[in-house]
């Protein structure tokens, strides 16, 4: 019930933030309307970081505490993170074509490391499908999830470490946090979009986690069923 309310609030927030970004905030002086893509693009990228950070932490938690609920959290965050990474890439392409003149440049470090991020976590999800044993699956996934997380800071700082096409962070870089290189209307609109996407993320995380737990319960019930049947058969002999 509470989750349902969160879902409704998230829905309203996403609609409101989208309306503000599209119709209320002025366009950028140099880029025009295309710059409006920045809001969902950046918000998606940040939530992808958050998701994969959660996957790594929950993976470490599983290795440490051996609680399958933590593995369910890791799995849920990875799936949602893949979605947000895809959104960030799609938004970036739609922004790049009208402003840079190209959809994609393989040689740009930010773009390439982000593509790698997507590939790593799609690999993570595929890996999970390979095993029927919940504990083994959780352990393997946790290891991959922790290793893959190394790419998160690489993606974020790629724009500062290497020469590329992608611009550096407007408000996300350490020396820019209190002094963003954009007027407050733009920053406010971005933070609004980020807040709305975070609410949606929370809601989706809760639902995805419930799904993971329900699937695990069904898996376990089937296993027990088979054991009981087998025992009955054995006893009857």
């Amino acid at each position: 019930m509470k989750t349902r309310i969160l879902g409704l609030v998230a829905l309203a927030a996403v609609i409101a933030a989208t309306a503000v970004a599209l119709f209320v905030v002025p366009p950028d002086q140099n880029q025009g309307d295309a710059q409006r893509i920045m809001y969902p693009h950046v918000a998606s990228a940040w939530l992808a970081y958050l998701s994969f950070g959660v996957t790594a932490l929950a993976g470490i938690g599983w290795l440490w505490k051996r609680d399958l609920r933590l593995d369910a959290v890791a799995h849920s965050a990875a799936e949602i993170g893949v979605m947000f990474t895809a959104f960030a890439i799609w938004g970036g392409m739609m922004w790049g074509r009208p402003v840079w003149g190209v959809f994609w440049q393989w040689e740009d470090p930010r773009l390439t490391t982000t593509a790698l991020l997507l590939a790593l976590y799609v690999g993570y999800l595929l890996l999970r499908r390979l095993s029927d044993d919940p504990e083994r699956r959780a352990t393997r996934a946790a290891i991959v999830g922790v290793i893959a997380a190394v790419d998160i800071p690489i993606v974020h700082f790629s724009v500062e470490w290497w020469r590329g096409l992608h611009q550096t962070a407007t408000i996300g870089s350490p020396d820019r946090v209190l002094n963003p290189a954009a007027p407050m209307v733009f920053v406010g609109s971005l933070l609004g979009m980020l807040g709305a996407f975070t609410l949606a993320w929370l809601y989706l995380m809760i639902r995805r986690y419930q799904l993971a737990r329900a699937e695990a319960a069904r898996e376990e019930a089937r296993r027990m069923d088979r054991i009981m049947t087998a025992r009955t058969v054995e006893a009857a002999r």
Binding site: Q29, N30, Q31, G101, T168, T170, A181, P183
Partner: peptide, 21 residues
């Protein structure tokens, strides 16, 4: 053969009376 515009991380509101492009 190709010109790619590398915009920076700075954004501004259009000055009053101007159109972005």
């Amino acid at each position: 053969t190709q010109v790619i515009v590398k915009h920076d991380e700075n954004y501004e509101v259009p000055a009053s009376g101007t159109v972005p492009s």
